[in-house]
Design a protein around this nucleic acid. Structure first.
Length: 572
DNA sequence: GCACTGAGCGCG
DNA sequence: AAAGCGCGCTCAGTGC
């Protein structure tokens, strides 16, 4: 059963009435009304939702981000939902729905990307965002959209995959909101200790920290430029050239190749200034509060289906400061990552039995090395990643023929994706997420007449080929990860009932294992010491379930590496 | 003063 | 050794 939740029609104008409200309507599996319309004052909504949740409906709303954060703040969680905006974006582009009327009918509608629609900071003054109260579409509109989406899924030959994708992605939006609500346990004191060790004490005002200032002074001295600002690439490049250091850029890896007294302090400066600017005291002030780091995750923020994040650089937490992510007393951080997810996904997609054999082992690269690279694991890894990314030069490019001989199926799969992309065609992930079509400018350029234009168009075609080549693998890996998370969430929600006294005495969720972080192929759970073993088992169970959902019975393992730690720095 | 781009570097 | 994919963030530099 579906329960559609919309802004009440009475308060969608700019001059919203004094009592903002929401409309509710239940629909049957086909999307037809199966109950009476209900209007609820927003202040009562959490209680109403909690009550209706007993029937285990699938909540349907314009965007999970519109409603769910406030419900979570009010202590209410839901089991499942359908995020209309996210699902519409998938269905509009999916190759599976191309033969239905859905893309054409919905393409023209303003497709609100998950990334452009709302400010990053929720309105804390009221329970729900004022946007929801005043500008949300009405119930009829949402019901019509849901019916159209259900029909589009039904009209394809791939109903099972597509409905799984929509359910998993929608579950992802719930998880994202829940993880933002919970936050990563973050010890400010440990973070500050790391900063102190590397940079010195917190500087006053806008000044550089002690250690950065010392390195800057040394650089000015060594390069003979008294006023040098090492943060300026242009100044730095000029100064290096004057000192006889012939570099094209100031990239660290290029500088590392050279011998000059200034190189070592310069590399040190770059490393430290990065720490200071990106994850220093200002970051701590802005993003960590009450012992939790709460970034915003953007589900569907990447075309391939990966998550993006907004604020705090959640998906780029440098190893340097991971020591500050630290479990509460009596708890552990359970960090699980899917081992070599993308190569395994490729083997499964391509049904490459030879590669599947190599993937029998927990270390896939070692298996590949044994089969075709004389046991050289490093070579095997470079070759396989090169195939997935489309490397043409360097060692990786040179190893391609060797890889192709051993795994014609797998290499053929990504080659086909690349050729399709070069021709301007669409490619699709396992569950039916398709890549965006090329722009009209790209298409026009492919018909260029002059030699110079044609050369550029060929370059653009190869570039798109690398994109589509990678898309099928990265995107299918994202499909797998979405299912993994959704399966884990379902199991974790059942957790308290399995463990006597699992819920806190006050009835709140304290003590229950919580997902607190997700990074493409890695999940972090914060759990009490006594729950660790059970959670580890659930992580592996969920991974097996995800594999079954995507590929059915297949002789390829998707092993999960799990480490149980106090500190994130100790994972891996 | 504000918006934007490119360089550079963090993550997978 | 550091290219081949996908991102976000900060700073310098530029243009209005």
């Amino acid at each position: 059963m579906y329960l559609v939740l919309a802004t009440a029609s009475g308060n969608r104008s700019a001059d919203a009435g004094p009592s903002p409200a929401a409309d509710l309507l239940s629909l049957d599996a086909a999307g037809n009304p199966s109950g009476t319309r209900l209007t609820v004052a927003l202040q009562n909504l959490p209680d109403v939702v909690r009550g209706l949740e007993q029937d285990r409906p699938r909540w349907v709303w314009q965007r999970t981000q519109d409603w769910y954060p406030a419900l979570l703040r009010a202590g209410v969680s839901v089991e499942k939902c359908h995020d209309l905006t996210l699902c519409r974006n998938i269905l509009v582009y999916s190759e599976f729905t191309a033969s239905t009327g859905y893309p054409r009918a919905n393409m023209a509608l303003p497709v609100e990307g998950a990334s452009d629609s709302r400010p990053g900071v929720p309105n804390q003054d009221s329970l729900f965002d004022s946007q929801v109260q005043q500008r949300g579409p009405g119930l009829e509109e949402l019901c019509a959209d849901l019916r159209a989406q259900l029909a589009a899924v039904r009209d394809t030959g791939e109903q099972a995959k597509l409905s799984l994708l929509l359910a998993a992605e929608s579950a992802g939006t719930l998880i994202a909101a829940e993880m933002q609500h919970t936050g990563v346990p973050w010890r400010e004191d440990l973070h500050e200790a790391i900063l102190q060790t590397h940079l010195g004490p917190r500087p006053e005002g806008m000044r550089r920290p002690e250690q950065l200032e010392r390195l800057a002074a040394r650089l000015r001295d060594l390069l003979g430029v008294p006023g040098l600002n090492p943060d300026s690439g242009q100044e730095l490049l000029r100064a290096l050239h004057r000192s006889g250091v012939e570099v094209k850029t100031t990239r660290s890896w290029e500088l590392e190749q050279l011998k000059h007294p200034a190189i070592e302090p310069l590399l040190a400066y770059k490393k430290l200034s990065r720490l200071f600017a990106a994850n220093g005291w200002a970051w701590l002030d802005q993003w960590v509060a009450g012992g939790r780091f709460r970034p915003e995750y953007v589900v569907g923020g990447v075309v391939s289906g990966r998550w993006a994040s907004r604020g705090g650089g959640a998906l780029q937490i440098p190893r340097q400061i991971r020591g500050a992510a630290f479990a509460d007393s009596g708890y552990k951080l359970i960090v699980a990552d899917a081992a070599q997810l993308e190569p395994r996904v490729l083997a499964a997609l391509a049904r490459d039995t030879k590669m599947a054999e190599a993937a029998r082992d927990k270390d896939l690269y070692a298996g590949i090395a044994a089969q075709g690279f004389g046991g050289d694991r490093a070579k095997a890894k470079v070759a396989l990643l090169g195939a997935i990314y489309g490397a043409t030069t360097g060692e990786s490019g040179r190893l391609m023929p060797q890889l192709t001989r051993t795994y014609p199926q797998a290499v053929g799969y990504v080659e086909d994706a690349a050729r399709a992309g070069e021709k301007g065609r669409i490619v699709t992930t396992r569950l039916g997420r398709s890549c965006p079509p090329p722009s009209t400018a790209w298409m026009a350029a492919q018909r260029s007449t002059t030699a110079e234009e044609q050369r550029r168009a060929d370059g653009a075609a190869r570039s798109r080929g690398r994109f589509t080549r990678n898309f099928v693998v990265q995107g299918s890996a994202a499909d797998w990860a979405a299912c993994w998370m959704a399966e884990l969430r379902r199991r974790l929600r059942a957790f308290p009932s399995e463990v006597p006294g699992g819920a806190a005495a006050d009835g709140g969720p304290a003590g229950v294992p919580e997902m607190v972080f997700f990074l493409h192929d890695e999940i972090m759970v914060h759990a009490r010491d006594e729950d660790v073993d059970r959670v580890c088992a659930l992580l592996e169970e969920a991974a097996r379930a995800a594999t079954q959902l995507l590929f059915g019975q297949i002789p390829i393992e998707f092993p999960v590496n799990i480490t149980v730690v106090q500190s994130y720095a100790d994972a891996k």
